[in-house]
Design a binder for these strands. Structure first.
Lengths: 93, 93
DNA sequence: ATAAACAGGTTTATATTATAAACCAAATTT
DNA sequence: AAATTTGGTTTATAATATAAACCTGTTTAT
């Protein structure tokens, strides 16, 4: 049985990656709403995904307000697909 | 996004449940080999699944040797199927 | 103009979880 | 009869997830 990438085998990180797989980019506020997570938790998990090179996180401004935008990387895509593939062994589809 | 049952969202417990979904029963030694886990870890996780009512664990003898046999329960089956269903939202199978 | 509330986060502390190490009793092998 | 193996359990530790507390700047109400 293949290993399930522990970085992706986490509800919140998986949710974030799942969203980013289907959308060009998503900002912090959007991800927070969609995943119904707390800001603190989301911040930590985004850091981890970013440190792993699975997503990019860019901070900018919209008017005077800060805006943190996330995108998935090619590495992230690959990792996600491999994770899904490994998962098939467990849930036999 | 549905919640991923934390009891099932664990590599080893998921592997055990996955095996038990496809087999009438499986003993400790078999599960340990198939999942490539340590005995201690397996023991703990079987307890958790058992406490949740997802599996039954029965200890018996084969000749003079102890044998611990596990089976999935109806509750366990339901929980597994619901977990898989929730997972679909995340990985769009 | 200033205090209070809010937006958008980050940092830190805590609770939970996963995992391996250490251990135990009985059986088997040397 | 000592050492090893089998089939586990218990306990200690490392890793993880999560929320609470906090920070910086902005907007709103007084």
């Amino acid at each position: 049985m293949k290993e399930l990438n522990p970085l992706l085998h986490s509800q919140l990180r998986l949710a974030v990656m799942s969203i980013l797989m289907n959308v060009e980019e998503a900002d912090f506020v959007y991800l927070k709403e969609k995943t119904e997570s707390t800001a603190g938790n989301l911040s930590v998990q985004l850091d981890k995904l970013s440190s792993a090179g699975y997503i990019t996180v860019t901070k900018g401004f919209v008017g005077k307000k800060t805006r943190t935008v996330c995108r998935i990387t090619a590495t992230g895509r690959d990792a996600f697909e491999e994770y899904v593939d490994a998962l098939r062994q467990y849930i036999s589809l």
